[in-house]
Design a protein around this nucleic acid. Structure first.
Lengths: 209, 209, 209, 209
DNA sequence: TATGAATGAGCATTCATTCAT
DNA sequence: AATGAATGAATGCTCATTCAT
């Protein structure tokens, strides 16, 4: 006791808060694993705290309830991603941003599948769709990218709806990875972009639709 | 009496079975409403039976458990739809089937939103199957339509993945209706088909993607 | 219809009651099978009526509840047996009745194991022992036989308790048949009687007990 | 503090675990009372927890289900008894063990009637195991005692069946106490042993059986 | 009489949340 | 701050019993 107080000195008052942050992180990490494996509803606080190797009560010292840790998990999980994408986009001219956003999303989704499982699998039930709420950010980003791309003609096009269509494709691409390994993120993005650029390959479509 | 016995005959000989069928239908109808409002997990059998105005025990006379009524609901709900679409398609040449399928889906989805809410909202959680399983039929149908459209070049294209992209767009179109009334099913289908035919409108996209 | 009314004639008014008796017998027979297989508590009225091939409601036309059919089953089942034994005993001198009772019981028990399963397995829980209540008749009969055998010295012996000991042996003999086929009823009775006559075989017992 | 930590040490280091053990014991005690009063099937977990003065959920913190507390109750209840009897027997020569076992059983059964009610009343129903399973230990012990007593002639005698007869008598002796206070355990054992030694008292039996 | 669909009290079981230590 | 035993409301499900036909 004496010993440690001499060594750490100035950080003395922070030790508690550092430990606290560590516990919080453990809980979030555990929650990420369990939510991904079981889904929102079949995840119990007990399983999270077990995996995090803390007492049940400790959970409530850090999060109000299951809902809060769930939201926090997604928020913090996607926050970093959002930032990275935002920064990356700044260096890219308006007209090419859509393609970049799509590529970036697939890249991150491929690297962090578990987070996307959680987001897309959602806590459903809760009024109309975990999936939808999870998409909020995605759709918002796409809408902005689209708005950036088109300064004119906006009135003719239903931009938000278009953004939704694109997000729908992206989500399906990610779901695809739950069952297949190929194609990788680059190729996946290219497939989507090709479709966005020219529509279905000619032989698949009779132009008189 | 004679008359009715001749007409109904076969499967409704007994008054009891007519009542029984009525109760079953009441339960399914109630379940449809409650599942749509609350989602799978927050729906209790009690709420279903209350809404159906029958005793709790009655539920178990007709369905083994919550899962069974859920499956039945979707199966029977989509069965009719599937049949109608299948019949309609027979009269349409291979090359135009994709467009017809998409139009038909939007038409039905618009008319029966609640059923789609339930299907898309799913009972998921349990191992990312929810939304995906619901899509199974959709994707399968689309894949077939695509295969029908393309006699050659199949090897070059990842058809199942393409079908997934399309189903993703359709689902987003349907979700859109949870928040907006416009555009109607026809226009919605046209938007999707336009995108599939030519890609994004030119001004939105810089061709150098 | 015409036909049968001509043939049966005078019994016309009884047809209903004959049918009724038939149904009652079907229920009792079915109950016997089910109680023997499942035991009192795990037997449901539904299973009885199914096996009897009558409607559930019909059950309550003949028996007030599960308890009543259970009691009736045992009562009627053992009634015949009691009568037979009683008759047989009349021709036997007092001093040999005990042996005869024991032989008779084993004979009947061997022939009607299922009834004895039900009686001995009981509906327990209900305050202190189905087994005990089932034994009531048995013990009563044995006590009488004992009393008949001993006109004097009764004060020295606790006759009812002795009767209980004997009934205990008999019950174990019957239980033995649930697992083994040998020895048959004759030999089984002899084993018990030998024990009653001389005690354990000498080599098994050191006389200084 | 030092003191207590030294004394208790081993398995009660934490205050929590002491409380936990207390609760477990409360539940077992309550279960013992309720099972004895109502029998297995008519005992509800609620009644146990009420009597133990704990919440319903607490029950499941200590026992998986009704079956488990039931088994535990008997196991732990008879464990001590078995040990005592085993120890006592070691100091007794082979030939006298049978008598000692019987005396010991009556002694314990008299002191712990409720436990025996539970054991003999059983949760049976389920396939005539109840009473029989409860006897398993009893019969096994008796069989061993018998085998010890007889070094020769074993082939002539059906020892297991004999053991069953004896266990049957003992059980009846115990049931007797549910209704009467006399005779006490010593006298009861003597009655049984007298019967085993010489058979029924002469006047009760005509030797020509 | 016979039927079997309907009933609902009753019970086992889970799990988010609290709180004494 | 951390703990984990305790809690009890909530829910799924069963089955003896009733009653309209």
């Amino acid at each position: 006791m004496n010993n440690s107080s001499q060594i750490e000195g100035q950080d003395e008052r922070h030790r508690g808060s550092r430990k606290r942050a560590r516990t919080r992180a453990d809980l979030l990490k555990a929650a990420r694993q369990v939510f991904a494996k079981r889904g929102y509803h079949d995840t119990s606080i007990a399983e999270i705290t077990e995996k995090a190797d803390v007492g049940v009560g400790t959970f409530y010292l850090h999060f109000r309830d299951k809902d809060e840790i769930f939201s926090t998990l997604l928020e913090e999980g996607f926050c970093e991603m959002r930032k990275q994408i935002a920064v990356a986009l700044e260096q890219i001219p308006q007209e090419r941003r859509l393609a970049s956003v799509i590529r970036a999303i697939f890249l991150h989704a491929h690297a962090q599948r578990d987070l996307f499982v959680i987001a897309l699998t959602g806590r459903d039930g809760a009024q109309l769709g975990g999936v939808m709420r999870a998409q909020a950010g995605l759709i918002e980003g796409l809408t902005k990218a689209l708005e950036g791309s088109s300064q004119k003609h906006q009135d003719e096009q239903n931009l938000p709806l278009l953004a939704r269509f694109i997000s729908g494709m992206i989500i399906q691409g990610i779901f695809w990875w739950f069952e297949h390994d190929e194609p990788g993120p680059e190729a996946m993005a290219n497939q989507v972009l090709e479709l966005l650029a020219h529509g279905l390959p000619v032989p698949l479509l009779d132009k008189n639709l």
